[in-house]
Design a protein around this nucleic acid. Structure first.
Length: 573
DNA sequence: GCCGTTTTCGGCCCGACTGTTTTCAGTCG
């Protein structure tokens, strides 16, 4: 039983309660409980056994009981009973933009509609117009909503959304009506996947700014357009939302527009308990209506006597409490990074030469770069034979003679085989400056087996780092089910670092795992895993993931200067 | 359904846009 199973249970129940038109607060309670468990560091089944579920904020006796039943029996009578009162699939109607619980229930009760296909057919046959308060426009919107849902299908990777947003910002910035502009929403929080692209503009002539936005050359359709906000669909079918505020409201709007939603809810509750009110226009005293702040974002936080919270950690998982105590983490910054410990060259599956990668690293101000091509069992991508390891070493040594204030290190991304053995004998591993051990196959092994496999690799005295530990590919391949507790504590014992791989479809360790790891004292290595010179820049996504995981400079192996790094790597052996 | 430096009952973040309504409900973020 995984935490994620319980999250699904609670969200399922919330969906069904919502459709049945139950109190929104009851629905919200289930969703909040699901969210808390999603962010939970511990194993929810263990907490249930110990009777500690109600220690979790947002979980009271009623939800605790349902979770307990579910983790002990694998079933939930409550969910099954609810499901019996509703046709399966009705919840999918809620996925359609513009359809909420009221309309879904209306369609089901009056027309017997319970699937998206049935709804589409009814709309095409104009049957929806027979309902009260539904006219032609709504019917059209239903069809368009279904169309949009089908095109959207999956969330996009941050690595796709962020460059797209930056492109729009580049174009809009040139317009005279645009005074300040920044990306907001989940992109500003650097969440690993993104639904919509949110952009905020400060302008004294909002109409002009909105018109500039809706007439950008990339616009395929205008979804909504008002005096202060608009939504467009781009030619690539990305939805982009723009909000325009006056320059005096910039800070409050940026705060509001960045979210996350639970973070803002918590913040507003705190404001209310102090006789203040926050909205996107500022922070106000409730009694007099006096505006206390709003021009700059951090002023909102300081008005509430807390430190300014970095966007990446605005998730209502303890950051507000920390900010009130003045104890926010000093998050790792990209400028703290001294070098990259994981990249590939044309010696295995990379595109560029060792020298080109070194030049690119130098151009980025790095002190060192670790060349870590694939090992011998990755034959299909030219994994290095023992002979080629020796040849590569000679080339690296030679190049180093010409560098000043920069050092090229020879590493390896050694494959962890199915039984936990590594691809080279110890005497070969001993020749590398840095050894990263990674699992590339057998990711679906049972928990016990894959955990033992990782432990065995970490116990090898030459292994410095475990590469992309879970092996997940976002949206394409599930993470390995290794025991986080056991693996992270073994990492501490053996002095092995865990990688945060920066490839946008990996981001592995993920944010919550990274937070748990550094909490337990694990060092992390934030690496690009670049296969081209340009990809060295992907490290910004790994940095973002680390920041979301509350990782500080002292937790990061490659924030160390070269000398300290080498001393640290030498210590394990 | 949860929760409590006013509270064990009565609240629960807040505002814009849309469509269908002459004053508001539904939906979204």
């Amino acid at each position: 039983m995984k935490n994620q199973d319980v999250v699904e249970l609670l969200n399922d129940i919330a969906d069904m309660l919502e459709i049945r038109g139950e109190s929104t607060f009851r629905v919200r309670a289930y969703r909040e409980a699901a969210r808390q468990i999603e962010n939970l560091q511990e194993d929810v089944a263990a907490l249930a056994t110990e009777g500690k579920l109600t220690d979790i904020r947002g979980i009271g006796s009623s939800i605790a009981e349902k979770i307990h039943e579910f983790v002990t029996t694998g079933r939930s009578e409550y969910r099954e009973n609810l499901a019996r009162t509703l046709p399966p699939g009705l919840a999918e109607l809620l996925e359609i933009p513009g359809i909420g619980s009221r309309k879904a229930l209306l369609f089901y009760e009056k027309l017997g509609i319970s699937t998206i296909d049935e709804l589409e057919q009814a709309a095409r046959e104009h049957k929806l117009q027979e309902l009260p308060s539904i006219k032609e426009k709504t019917e059209q919107n239903v069809l368009e909503g279904i169309e949009r849902l089908r095109q959207k299908s999956t969330r996009m990777l941050l690595g796709v959304a962020l460059p797209a947003a930056e492109e729009v910002i580049r174009m809009l910035k040139q317009h005279p009506s645009v005074e300040r502009i920044e990306v907001g929403g989940s992109i500003r929080r650097m969440q690993e996947t993104i639904g919509d692209i949110d952009i905020l503009v400060a302008s004294s002539s909002p109409k002009d700014a909105i018109n500039a936005f809706t007439s950008l050359p990339i616009v395929k359709a205008v979804i909504a357009k008002g005096g202060t906000k608009a939504s467009i669909l781009t030619r690539q079918d990305l939805q982009i939302d723009l909000r325009v505020v006056s320059p005096e409201q910039w800070g409050a709007a940026l705060q509001y527009f960045t979210g996350s939603k639970p973070h803002n809810i918590q913040l507003r509750s705190i404001a209310e308990s102090r006789g203040m009110k926050i909205n996107e226009y500022g922070i106000f005293r409730i009694d007099t209506g006096e505006r206390l702040a709003g021009r700059e974002e951090c002023d909102i936080y300081s008005t509430l006597d807390m430190l300014c919270i970095p966007p990446e950690i605005r998730n209502a998982t303890g950051e507000i409490e920390a900010a009130m105590k003045g104890e926010l983490p000093n998050l790792i910054d990209i400028s703290d990074i001294r070098g990259d410990l994981h990249c590939h060259t044309d010696w295995s599956d990379g595109a560029n030469s060792i020298e080109a990668m070194a030049e690119a690293a130098k151009a980025r101000g790095y002190e060192y770069l670790v060349i870590s091509d694939h090992s011998v069992s990755m034959g299909f991508i030219h994994g290095l034979s023992t002979d080629r390891v020796r040849e590569q070493r000679a080339i690296i040594d030679d190049l180093n003679k010409s560098y000043k204030d920069f050092k090229l290190l020879q590493g390896i991304e050694v494959n962890i085989r199915g039984n936990g053995n590594l691809d080279y004998p110890d005497d070969v591993l001993a020749r590398f400056d840095v050894v990263t051990a990674s699992i590339h196959s057998g990711l679906a092994q049972p928990r016990e087996q894959i955990t033992q496999r990782m432990i065995k690799a970490m116990q090898n005295p030459h292994v410095d780092i475990i590469g992309h530990p879970s092996g997940r590919l976002i949206g394409r391949r599930d993470p390995a089910d290794f025991d986080r507790e056991v693996v992270f504590s073994t990492a501490v014992e053996t002095g092995t670092a865990m990688e945060i791989d920066s490839q946008p479809d990996r981001l592995d360790l993920k944010d919550t795992d990274a937070r748990r790891a550094v909490d337990m004292g694990v060092m992390v290595a934030i690496n690009s895993d670049a296969h081209t010179t340009d990809q060295l820049d992907l490290i910004r996504y790994g940095i973002a993931t680390a920041r979301r995981g509350w990782v500080e400079k002292d937790d990061v192996l490659n924030a160390l200067p070269l000398e300290d790094l080498m001393a640290r790597l030498g210590k394990k052996k």
